[in-house]
Design a protein around this nucleic acid. Structure first.
Lengths: 186, 186
DNA sequence: ATCGTTGGCTAACGCCATTAGCTTTTAGCT
DNA sequence: AGCTAAAAGCTAATGGCGTTAGCCAACGAT
């Protein structure tokens, strides 16, 4: 029988795709194997465990988010950059809820943990957004946490179907971006 | 052998306590049974399944949060109420991360689903906070979603250890409450 | 052509959720 | 007080999933 020609990246990609389709919690090793046309134990030649696979999905998601943010912020500043970052993050979570969910248990095991590296790149983009506002350097950390908390919370609740659909969620999101923009200018 | 004298509430309470101690994902039926001094299958006389147990934990947490909020908001308004609600929510999540995590998959199966009822009570308290500000009625929905997203996001990231500890998280939280207060006044 | 490495497979183990069916306690009724 | 029926516990068993061990075939380098 011919070989499947897998590698860690291919396994991670398949798992990430499944996570978006059926939810991260329902991504089973058997399901990933089936998707790849392989038997379950074969996966262990490429990833160490299910926990390892989840970490790889998280890194993939953080890298993708980081790239998307960097691209979206090209040449933008101030309110423009804020809106671009906000929409980019929300779109990513809506389109890839499973991948994104894998990033929630942020447990960097060290400073060179790939998850910490990829996470830091995302934070750099958020810092770039804040650079467009005149913020007391002592407050930038707080403003960063504000953005992280708000975007993460909104995306998570939206992905979980936590908002009543009788009022337009897009409209709320625009209102929210505007609210933050006004606040950061003061 | 004497009887254990369990009921759904006791099982739920034990499971919620374990969730706070070992994390919701690690709450196994066997662990709950052991905590209660009972064999695993006996639990099924009181709860239908593990999913049912998780929903009960979520309801418990939402009721507790709702009660805590209502009490904290007694006689307060405006910035005072906002700060009280914020601190109450954060404290609850820090002290009961496992219970709170059970509330994340918000899937109300109907308008009389206990999870929807308990959730609505929490939202009522948030609405009470906003009542202390002069907000265009058309914008209250957006402001509600702002508060939910922000508090939920902050608490979730904090509970996951997602904030670098080199800058005081308490200080960020105060800054954040102040930021929202100023914004809601404009 | 061959040899070692690599990637796939089958078989097997242990843990967990769940169900079936039995036994004993216990509350309510006479 | 004694009886009965439901409720609450137990043991045994099933099926799924993660993981490991050990075997064999494919493939790249010599």
């Amino acid at each position: 029988m011919p070989r499947a020609g897998l590698d860690p990246a291919a396994v991670t990609a398949a798992a990430a795709g499944l996570a978006d389709e059926v939810g991260l919690a329902n991504v089973t090793m058997g399901l990933v194997a089936e998707r790849l046309g392989v038997r379950t134990p074969s996966l262990y030649k490429h990833v160490a465990s299910q926990a390892d696979l989840n970490r790889r999905i998280a890194v993939l998601a953080l890298v993708e988010v980081g790239d998307a943010l960097r691209e979206a912020l090209q040449g933008r500043a101030g309110r423009d950059a804020l809106a671009a970052a906000a929409h980019t993050l929300r779109s990513y979570v809506v389109e890839h809820p499973g991948r994104y969910a894998a990033t929630l248990p942020l447990n960097p095991e060290g400073p060179d943990d790939p998850i910490a590296v990829a996470g830091a790149r995302v934070l750099d983009s958020l810092a770039a957004v804040l650079a467009g506002y005149a913020i007391d350097p002592a407050d930038t950390v707080h403003a960063m946490r504000l953005l992280r908390s708000l975007f993460h919370g909104f995306a998570t609740i939206e992905a979980a179907g936590g908002f009543e659909m009788d009022t337009d969620v897009d409209q709320s999101f625009e209102w929210l971006v505007d609210f933050i923009d006004r606040g950061l200018k003061a």
